[in-house]
Nucleic acid binder design. Structure first.
Length: 415
DNA sequence: TAGGCCATCTGGTCCT
DNA sequence: AGGACCAGATGGCCTA
């Protein structure tokens, strides 16, 4: 976008802010944006009281949690053997943003401003106070009546004005580019969280929430050192997400009532062998299919042999998830835009374009979506043949030297 | 039509 | 001085 590129929709703003507003447009703005002003008043009130807006608080929480949980998982991945859950620290997702902190930060900020070593900031304050002083003096004569003496402010020369304008345009362009970079990063994040759709993009805030939840869930699994409960995992994943996003996630994970049957007692159970077991039957039973460790601690992983998985049940979680869904996690049957999933890959991302080549460059493992029976096959180069029994439409797809722990997680979370 | 989400502009602050 | 970062303001688009 060139510097001259006019923003698509900010002409009104530009007019009102930069050039002032005529009466009619002011009237129009008053009508049209009374809502905004009301919100603005609310925000201003919050500002005065040092209260953060809900979105600010949300974003702060998520940012902190994301950072902490990500570094936590990285630390575990890199430094701790997967077999020693006891030695792993409990996940720390307790970062919060209490009002007192806000107040404290405000205090500190104002102190900092007062004692700011930055001469420019001081200068600005001095200039401002001088200006106010001048205003008071110049606007009134000795009788307190308003008076006008010529121009007080030095007028910018046209050259200087031009320069200021150019600098502002350049700054705008940089800001745009910066925000685009930020959005690109967010887009990358969208692609690696457990649900990705080009047609129904997660909002920024939802992407951050989902990423946080995902890291949390992975972290919990690492801590537990055993295969996760599917529904508990999904519950964690959906915590705090909006209903549409929850639906989307459920759709991506193909979790809906169709995947379950209800027995005579009204208790839920899987309609067939849990896919997780299906995976691990072949996973742990296949010597050749057992991924080797990635060298952490100098040894290979023995997850498959030394750490056999316990029998697995979905009952409790099913009930909690489907019969008494929490307000945050309620998930009606998914009928979203992803019904014909094309390709699960990486960490359960649904792609509508084939990123396999790109993905293969950076990832050691992956999950390819296998079409449900009757839809043809995608499963080339699959390392693990998975018993699908009509309910498990995935197969493990290992590229290069896999990370045992990652495979563990990957397999678990994809079932 | 209200509300959510978003892109952009803008001014302030901090840092190099 | 100038760039990066941030947060507030503004207004368009979309959906329930």
């Amino acid at each position: 976008m060139s510097l001259e590129t006019k923003p698509r929709d900010n002409h009104c703003h530009a007019t009102s802010v930069a050039d002032g507003m005529d009466t009619s447009s002011r009237c129009w703005h008053q009508c049209h944006f009374s809502k905004r002003r009301k919100e603005g008043k609310k925000e201003a009130e919050k500002k005065r009281t040092g209260e953060k807006t809900q979105r600010q608080v949300d974003a702060y929480h998520i940012g902190i949690s994301l950072t902490e949980s990500f570094s936590d998982v990285c630390r575990r991945m890199l430094t701790l053997p997967f077999e020693e859950p006891a030695t792993m620290p409990e996940p720390r997702f307790t970062a919060n943003f209490p009002p007192e902190c806000v107040a404290e930060n405000k205090k500190l900020a104002s102190k900092k401003l007062d004692a700011s070593p930055n001469p420019k900031a001081k200068e600005t304050r001095e200039e401002n106070s001088e200006k106010e002083e001048e205003d008071r003096e110049d606007d009134q004569d000795e009788n307190g009546l308003p008076k006008r003496k010529g121009a007080r402010k030095k007028k910018l020369t046209s050259g200087r004005q031009e320069r200021v304008k150019v600098r502002r345009q350049e700054a705008n362009a940089r800001e745009r580019s910066r925000m685009h970079g930020l959005n690109d990063a967010l887009e990358s994040l969208r692609k690696v969280v457990p649900c990705y759709s080009k047609t129904q993009k997660l909002s920024k805030i939802e992407t951050l929430r989902l990423a946080k939840n995902y890291i949390w869930a992975l972290s919990e699994t690492l801590s537990a050192g055993k295969r996760p409960d599917l529904l508990a995992f999904v519950q964690t994943l959906c915590k705090g997400l909006s209903q549409p996003t929850t639906n989307l996630v459920a759709g991506c994970l193909q979790l809906n009532a169709r995947n379950f049957l209800t027995d005579h007692n009204g208790e839920a159970s899987f309609s067939a062998r849990p896919p997780y077991d299906a995976v691990y039957a072949s996973y742990s039973g296949s010597e050749t299919g057992t991924p080797t460790g990635h060298g952490c601690g100098g040894g290979t992983s023995t997850l498959d042999s030394a750490k056999p998985f316990r029998p697995y049940s979905y009952g409790g979680s099913y009930e909690s998830f489907y019969e008494n869904p929490s307000p945050e996690c309620a998930s009606p049957p998914f009928e979203g835009p992803l019904s014909p999933p094309i390709n699960f890959n990486g960490i359960f991302s649904l792609k509508h374009e084939d990123p396999a080549a790109e993905y293969g460059k950076t990832c050691h493992y992956g999950m390819r979506y296998c079409p449900v029976p009757g839809r043809g096959s995608l499963g080339q180069s699959s390392m693990f043949a998975v018993s699908t029994d009509g309910h498990f439409p995935y197969d493990l797809h290992v590229r290069g030297q896999p990370y045992a722990a990652q495979d563990e997680l990957n397999a678990a979370f994809h079932n």
